[in-house]
Amino acid sequence: MSDKTRLPVGYEAIRDKGWIMAHRFLLLRRTSQFFFLSLFLLGPWFGIWWVQGNLSGSLTFGILPLTDPFILLQGMAAGHWPEMTAILGALIVGVAYALIGGRVYCSWVCPINPVTDMAHWLHAKVGMPKGWQPKRGTKYFMLAMVLGVSALSGTIAWEVINPISMLHRGLIFGMGFAWAFVLGVFVFDFALARRGWCGHICPVGAFYGLLGAKSLLRVTAQKRAACDDCMDCFDVCPENQVITPALRGKDADTPLILSPDCTNCGRCIDVCSVDVFNFTHRFDDTPAPGRVRTRTKPAQKVDNAA
């Protein structure tokens, strides 16, 4: 702990870098989320049919097919071998996220992300208790469960619930009562489990995390020696267990955040006033000396902030 820990989150970053630079990835991310949603809404709202369909499957400019690989995988588990168009679309999406980081989908595209971010904002504002924190492995059990139920029932099982497609399809094709699922996720994250849905439960996020487990694009704590323990990055990070090994690593440890849980949202880069973090590729081996410990009695245990 340093004195700076007690300052409001992002205080030093805003002071030193200015508000825009202290929020640039957040702003970019919201822009990206808005951009991808608008692409789909241009057609139904303004008659500009650049993109047809929704996140489950789409056709761009009448030529580029895109398919959600997780939905297609459930269909295959259910016993349907899809046609080439869908397979091609899933391959394009799969390769893209395998390169830039699977959970980039979660933080830059998924329409539920603003919902859970808002829930977390309110959660922090009201000072709600952390609540139920399912184990990090829960989402993988969910993933296996969804594929199992798909296989046993012969249907694409998660689409009966999936709040992502409920919201996205609802906005584009008509909502019905699908908003109830979105509200459910909001209430879950706000009142029952802090950052509960995306990080602990959602099997879509688990799938994309695995997909991008070896992705090229990575955040690095390159200048970790400069860390002044303000703890702001831990505060803004939705998966803050991923920071510790990189930031608190010794000289020999890699400064790259290699956990598949990292969503590449870049908020840690924003709020760091001393620019410890940056985007890089996973083969970046620039030497990153560990922090020189100044305290007489350093914490022995790995931070368990998750």
């Binding site: 047809q52 369909g53 929704n54 056709l59 939905i71 259910a78 694409i156 689409e159 399809r169």
Partner: peptide
């Protein structure tokens, strides 16, 4: 098992 509900 086959329909991904894309609406195309």
């Amino acid at each position: 098992a086959a329909c991904i509900r894309c609406g195309l």
